[in-house]
Simulated scan of single mutants.
Amino acid sequence: MNVRDLMTPEPITVAPETPVAQVIALLVSQGVNGVPVVDASGALLGMVTSGDLIHRLADERLEPHSSLWRESFYRSVFSAAHRDAPDPAEGATAAQVMSRDTVCVAPEDDMVVAARLLIAHGVKSLPVLEAGRLVGMISRMDLLRCLHAHPDCCNPLKKTD
């Protein structure tokens, strides 16, 4: 079965300038873990997930750190490449908090490819791109629905008698 057969077509999206509070409200009201961020032409720019937004609760500036030297070292060494990017805990818009390195699939890809990518990258859903444009989303739940509806089609280890 292909991704196209299982994906959610025309997924909920947000624009890069969407305020974070609106993104949070959308995730909560729709019961989803993430939304694609797209430009006016429908090109995928990134994803805002619950994982990106949880930084607001884990803001390390609120607790005293065990070592000022260690904090300064990590900030200077590891965040040097991202000095222009806002801290996810401080971002005000979808573009400022989104993950940019998004793993995607094509509608023609087999569902096994989607399952392997979901597992390998530890994500809950994947954008589906066709000709560079977002055409759908496929999630772990979409794959489970398929497994539930067709338990024999998805188990390569099933014994045949």
Score class of each variant (00 low, 15 high):
Met1Tyr: 01
Val3Asp: 09
Val3Ser: 02
Met7Gln: 01
Met7Pro: 03
Met7Ile: 03
Pro9Leu: 15
Glu10Thr: 08
Pro11Ser: 09
Thr13Gln: 09
Pro16Lys: 01
Pro16Tyr: 08
Ala21Thr: 11
Gln22Arg: 14
Ile24Lys: 08
Ala25Tyr: 11
Val28Met: 07
Ser29Arg: 15
Val35Asp: 05
Pro36Asn: 14
Ala40Leu: 09
Ala43Tyr: 13
Leu45Cys: 08
Gly46Asp: 12
Gly46Asn: 05
Met47Phe: 06
Met47Pro: 02
His55Asp: 12
Ala58Tyr: 11
Asp59Arg: 15
Glu60Leu: 11
Arg61His: 06
Glu63Leu: 11
Glu63Cys: 08
Arg70Gly: 01
Arg70Ser: 04
Glu71Ala: 14
Ser76Lys: 06
Val77Trp: 00
Ser79Trp: 01
Ala80Phe: 08
Asp84Cys: 00
Ala85Val: 11
Pro86Tyr: 01
Thr93Gly: 05
Ala94Gly: 13
Met98Ile: 06
Met98Thr: 00
Cys104Ser: 08
Cys104Met: 07
Cys104Asp: 01
Cys104Thr: 15
Ala106Asn: 05
Met111Ile: 06
Val113Ile: 01
Ala114His: 04
Ala115Leu: 09
Ala115Asp: 12
Ala115Thr: 05
Arg116Gly: 03
Arg116Glu: 14
Ile119Asn: 12
His121Gln: 10
Val123Cys: 14
Val123Arg: 07
Ser125Gly: 10
Leu129Cys: 02
Leu129Ala: 10
Leu129Lys: 13
Ala131Trp: 00
Ala131Met: 13
Gly132Asp: 11
Val135Gly: 14
Leu143His: 00
Leu144Ser: 07
Leu144Gly: 00
Leu144Glu: 02
Arg145Ile: 03
Leu147Trp: 05
Ala149Ser: 06
Ala149Arg: 00
Asp152Gly: 10
Asp152Cys: 15
Cys153Asn: 01
Pro156Trp: 01
Leu157Glu: 13
Leu157Cys: 02
Lys158Asn: 10
Lys158Asp: 14
Asp161Tyr: 09
